[in-house]
Amino acid sequence: MSAVSLTQLAGMGLLVAVLALCVVWASGDSNKYRKLVWMTLFLTFDLIMFGAFTRLTDSGLGCPDWPGCYGHSNPLLAHAHISAAQDAMPTGPVTVIKAWIEMTHRYFAMGVGALIIALMAIAWIRRFKSTQREAKLSPWYPTMLLALVCLQGAFGAWTVTQKLQPIIVTTHLLLGLTLLAMLAWLGARQNDHLPVAATAARLASPALIAVILLVIQIALGGWVSTNYAALACNDFPLCHGRLVPEMDFANGFTLWRHLGMTADGEYLPFQALTAIHWTHRSFAFVVIAYVGWLAHKALRIHGLRATGRWLLIAIGLQLLTGLSTIFLDWPLAIAVAHNGGAALLLVLLVMLNFKTRHAPGFQAVPAVPNKPLIVDHLHPHS
Rank of each mutant, 00 (worst) to 15 (best):
L273D: 03
G222N: 11
L186I: 10
N31Q: 12
T104R: 02
A3C: 07
H379C: 10
L21F: 08
T159I: 13
Q8P: 00
K355S: 12
F253H: 12
A229P: 00
S225T: 04
C239F: 01
V287Q: 03
I288W: 14
D376F: 09
I326T: 07
G113K: 02
V368Y: 05
H105P: 03
V160L: 11
M12Q: 03
M39G: 02
L175T: 05
R34T: 08
E102F: 04
A364R: 15
A118S: 09
I101S: 05
W158N: 03
R189I: 01
A147P: 04
F354A: 00
A78Y: 01
F249S: 06
T199E: 15
E134D: 09
V149G: 06
H379F: 11
H296A: 09
I288N: 01
L349D: 04
W223R: 02
L294K: 05
W38Q: 10
M182C: 14
T143V: 11
I168D: 00
Q152F: 12
D65T: 08
Q190I: 05
H258V: 01
D248T: 10
V244C: 10
M49F: 09
R300G: 01
V375D: 06
V18K: 00
K371T: 15
I315M: 14
V368C: 12
P360W: 12
Y107S: 09
L243K: 05
A263T: 03
A298P: 00
A359F: 08
L268K: 02
N74C: 11
V169T: 14
L180F: 09
D192Q: 15
E246H: 14
W256R: 06
S282M: 13
A181M: 07
A367R: 11
L213S: 07
T178M: 15
C69D: 06
Y267H: 09
A295N: 05
H358G: 00
I82Q: 03
A342Q: 00
G316N: 12
V4S: 08
P366H: 15
S30P: 00
A333M: 10
F283Y: 12
T262Q: 13
L174A: 09
